[in-house]
């Protein structure tokens, strides 16, 4: 749905992150929320109806970008820049006590 300008210019990605266990190229400055928008099916599922959701506001207001980041659930993806090797997992439904 979104693509890096630099990728379009033929540049190589800055790092690799793991999205649901799959190695995924990522770019300096982008956030977890940005990655969720680039990887099909990576978004969360609503804890109410189970329908798919993707980041909506990118400014910390809407909480649609919640994801499990390095094992911590309900992380607001739009507030967290990517880091090499970061583990991003889709959050399906509500946060579990174990993570």
């Amino acid at each position: 749905m979104f693509k890096s300008v630099r990728e379009q210019l033929g540049k190589r990605s800055d790092m690799i992150v793991l999205v649901n266990g799959v190695e995924t190229p990522a770019w300096d400055g982008e956030t977890v929320a940005s990655v969720l928008l680039r990887v099909p099916g990576a978004g969360r599922r609503s804890p109410v109806s189970g329908t798919p959701r993707l980041p909506y506001c990118q400014m910390g207001v809407c909480f649609e970008c919640l994801a499990i980041v390095d094992g911590i659930a309900s992380t607001q993806g739009c507030l967290v820049p990517v880091r090499p090797g970061m583990r991003i997992e889709s959050q399906r439904g509500p946060r579990e006590i174990s993570r």
Binding site: M1, S4, V5, W27, E30, S34, L37, P55, Y56, C78
Partner: peptide
């Protein structure tokens, strides 16, 4: 407005400013 693929203009602009992302399709 809750469907994946719908978001705000401000959100798209932030994606541009933070990671240099452009919408596709």
């Amino acid at each position: 407005w809750t469907l994946p693929g719908v978001m705000t203009v401000g959100a798209a602009q932030i994606l541009l400013k933070s990671g240099g992302m452009l919408p596709e399709g």
